[in-house]
Write a protein that binds this DNA or RNA. Structure first.
Lengths: 356, 356
DNA sequence: TTTAGCACTTAACTACTATGAGTGCTAACA
DNA sequence: TGTTAGCACTCATAGTAGTTAAGTGCTAAA
């Protein structure tokens, strides 16, 4: 456990290292610290901090920089979110001030705003589809034996996919089947729809379809895609800001990682299992270096902010940048940003359900 | 105009430089050339080639490398497409051997296959929507005053967007309006639909809608999005292969370019105006360095292959890589690749119209 | 026209030498 | 006991000089 003075020194090391990117020496600290102590004393304190594993050296005679544990300690105990400037605030509201046609657009735009604001990479995941209900299911014939199956949800998202229908099924029967789906399932939460799909629907449909399996597979397939989480990454190229010019291969690997969009959210553990206590407590949490599963991200930090939209579950927005980010400012920013985002999403949903 | 022997030397310089990435000296050439001449003679010939601006030096005592004009000359007069190995061929057919649900999936997959195959970045643009017809238009109420407008085309693509309908319009009238759209416009090519939208439709709709403007705007909007060209970029990260480790800023700029997907096709001039004779003649053409509008791409080359799908217009697939690419192999590959791609797209469309 | 020979150029590598920022330790001091 | 001045020591960085190897241009001979 560092003493109060050691904590002060650690905070200062984090601050200066984040600003300059260079290891911090005892003389520099002496000039910057609010208290009057000599460089020798600072050296002694730094030796103690190094003993505790909170700071480290690049080589015998270099200044100190925060270790991962040092960052961790700083984030958990020392950091204080700084207040966001009014200009930034008005920038955010301005960027959000448009009419969004789909919830996905809001999610996308939020990632873009945040990455523009911070010059880091941003990842945005829409509110969980807890209370989303099925609004409608349609089949539109395309000619031939192909149809487009369209599924709409109360969130305003539409999923459409093309399928082949065996010629043996008459279009009358198809229409009836679609009507049954709509009569029985519209208005139900997606989860329940999935459930009924396995239990009651097969029986109901056998009246009209000889073998409803194909039809149900199709419906299930669209449903699965509609319920899948959509997320967006903004400012990919900012990842290049933080990297040393020499290790080009690492950049490449990280980009390949980003390209494989499918694995990204699980890799970053954006939606942790509930066992993971620490992160579920606070709305904003930070994941550092070796806490990632993938070694490629060892030099990166991820600031994750959870936000809750009334009756619509949790969404997530995150910043991915180098380990040394101005956390204090960024976390202040995130608090404000999620507030605005929640406001916007809430507003969007309200337009739906209110004026009927 | 280079002599025959000079052309041979140029070809060899291009080949070796592409393989090694290093400037080529007279001794190396002496050993590699199929003819028996001394290094001194080669030096003389190289001096002549340099005089013509076809090759250049990095510094006084370095070997030679092809200049942009040199590449241009090589591509226009010397290059011979090499034959693709059977393994590559079977790789291509294998990768294409799946059931595609949408034409966009084929376009996407083709970009991925090509970039995997070549280790370069690949850009794929689907066949132009010349003969695409409107297959259906639907509105699904979402509750409140919102509806999802869904437009389907004979290509199997579906565009859906959410709109707000003024409460003054009754749902009965809306349904009638939708029916009118379907009765009058289904089966027509998109172009004609657009035309009628401006001419006849307003009159027809006034019978049912007090002011059809809002409705027509909505329909026009979906139509515009449905008709927009979709393209895909595969293997973005391969761009990093070709770049010098020191100029990180250029990489970043190029990535930002790639992120702005909207400007990319026009920048690359993938669909040149028909005046541009050279490129419309050949199905495969190459654009080099300073021929790009954007200076960022000065060190890059773009191999563009046009392919024609019967009754469905032209599609484009391209490879973006460093100026020094193994053009001979790549162009051979592209010929074969577009054949396979055309086959696949044709097959896809046939499933639509044939077995009705 | 071709070739051998040679002087010349240049990038890349190596070895060596400051320089300076920074540390750890000791001894004196409050 | 905590703090500070002083000093020897370490190490990355930058700069200088010398060497090597690849390559050129030019001249003169075949």
């Amino acid at each position: 456990m560092p003493t109060k003075r050691q904590a002060l020194i650690l905070t200062e090391i984090v601050r200066i290292y984040n600003e300059t990117g260079q290891p911090v020496g005892s003389k520099t600290l002496m000039n910057q610290l609010p208290i009057q102590i000599s460089s020798a004393t600072i050296r002694n304190e730094m030796a103690a901090l190094e003993e505790d594993g909170l700071i480290m050296k690049n080589h015998t005679s270099s200044g100190r920089l925060p270790s991962t544990s040092g960052y961790r300690y700083y984030l958990d105990y020392l950091l204080q979110p700084s207040v966001v400037s009014p200009q930034v605030f008005s920038t955010i509201s301005q960027d959000f001030d448009r009419d969004f046609h789909e919830i996905d657009d809001i999610v996308k735009q939020s990632a873009n705003i945040l990455s523009n604001l911070t010059n880091y990479t941003s990842i945005s995941l829409g509110p969980e589809t807890i209370n989303v209900t099925l609004t409608g299911f349609r089949l539109i014939p395309l000619g031939g034996d192909l149809v487009i199956a369209i599924l709409a949800t109360s969130m305003g998202s539409v999923e459409s996919r093309v399928y082949r229908i065996p010629a043996s099924i008459s279009s009358d029967d198809l229409e009836k089947a679609v009507r049954i789906i709509n009569d029985h399932l519209v208005g139900l939460p997606i989860d329940q729809v999935k459930q009924q799909l396995a239990t009651e629907m097969p029986q109901l449909l056998t009246k009209y379809l000889h073998s409803p399996d194909g039809f149900l597979d199709m419906f299930g397939d669209v449903l699965r895609h509609a319920a899948a989480e959509h997320f967006y990454i903004g400012g990919r190229s900012n990842l290049l800001n933080s990297v040393q010019p020499d290790d080009l291969n690492r950049i490449k690997s990280i980009y390949q990682l980003l390209d494989k969009e499918s694995v990204f959210p699980s890799l970053l553990d954006l939606r942790p299992n509930n066992d993971h206590q620490q992160s579920t407590d606070k709305p904003i949490s930070v994941k550092l270096g070796d806490e990632f599963d993938n070694a490629l991200l060892n030099d990166y930090g991820l600031i994750t902010a959870r936000y809750h939209v009334a009756d619509h579950g949790e969404g997530i927005i995150a910043i991915l940048g180098p380990t040394s980010m101005p956390y204090s400012q960024l976390i202040g920013l995130m608090q404000l940003f999620t507030d605005e985002l929640v406001k916007k999403i809430y507003e969007y949903y309200n337009h739906f359900h209110d004026d009927s």
